[in-house]
């Protein structure tokens, strides 16, 4: 426990230092946030434009899609805010920066996470929360709790996939392309009712790359649409826990790969 408190305290100190550094490039920061809003905004703008002409996507109304989109986006933002520096892992390994991380008496993952806060991703969080609140269906307190748990669980699902793939960079693999692709699948396919994609693709997006569990499955629970799912209703109700399990697994993979880290091999 004391170890966790210490890690959190140091995380905060390192993060503050990183922010002080980043604040010296203010213009960059502002444009970064704007780009975040524009990126997520353009994704939803597509839905909005389309639904001017068409009443429903896969039987879901604009409001329901907006809710799904909001859940997905908020989960994504919760993942990317603390984990944004993981994107640079390939570079950290190649430049030998990871050596320094390993020389310090603090969990390496905490140190990497503390290298940078994805302030640019505040735009994602903002856009996600707005959609979520605007499109929130009338829910009881239990459902609200489930919704919160589901968003955190969804963030952990994305974080787990990202961490597991990134840990291959410790073996000096070029993982950037694969990770960008996985990210792309999460953000593009995660915001639609999966039934739209047909059986095979839906199966793959549920059981191979668990995109469905980030938002679609829990949103179906909250919108009372569990009948459409390709997983049994109890599994759907337990979906927030999946994130925890997957992340624990990913962390194990990460630790294993760290043991095999070869540095720059000189």
């Amino acid at each position: 426990m004391a170890e966790v408190v210490r890690a959190l305290r140091l995380y905060w100190r390192l993060q503050r230092a990183a922010m002080r550094g980043a604040l010296q490039y203010r213009l960059n920061l502002v444009i970064g946030i704007a780009a975040g809003v524009a990126y997520q905004g353009s994704g939803f703008a597509f839905v909005w434009v389309v639904m001017h002409t068409f009443p429903a996507v896969g039987g879901w109304s604009l409001r329901e899609i907006a809710f799904l989109y909001g859940m997905r986006l908020t989960a994504h933002a919760l993942y990317v805010l603390p984990f944004s520096s993981l994107i640079g892992l390939d570079w950290l390994v190649r430049e030998g920066e990871l050596d320094r991380v390993l020389l310090r008496p603090l969990n390496p993952l905490v140190q990497i996470m503390a290298k940078r806060l994805g302030v640019g991703q505040l735009g994602d969080l903002l856009a996600g929360l707005v959609l979520l609140v605007v499109a929130l269906p009338p829910l009881g307190p239990a459902s609200i709790l489930f919704c919160l748990a589901a968003v955190v669980g969804g963030a952990l699902v994305e974080a787990a996939v990202s961490l597991a793939l990134a840990s291959l960079a410790l073996r000096t693999w070029n993982t950037l392309g694969v990770r960008a692709f996985a990210d792309d699948l999460f953000s593009k396919f995660g915001s639609y009712p999966m039934s739209v994609f047909g059986g095979a693709a839906q199966w793959a997006l549920t059981f191979v790359l668990p995109v469905a569990f980030v938002a679609y499955v829990p949103a179906s629970v909250l919108l009372d649409r569990t009948g459409e799912l390709n997983v049994p209703a109890p599994v759907a109700y337990g979906s927030p826990l999946l994130g925890v399990a997957l992340f624990a697994l990913a962390y194990r993979i990460w630790s294993r790969q760290l043991r095999h880290y070869q540095s720059t091999g000189t």
Binding site: F54, V57, G58, G177, A180, F181, L185, F189, G198
Partner: peptide
């Protein structure tokens, strides 16, 4: 090229996504 190959795969996925969404619409 390895990054480019991945982004070509992403392109195919994007076209597939649009196809399915629009067919449903």
């Amino acid at each position: 090229r390895s990054d480019v190959i991945m982004s070509v795969v992403a392109l195919v996925a994007q076209v597939f996504l649009l196809r399915m969404v629009w067919t449903s619409l």
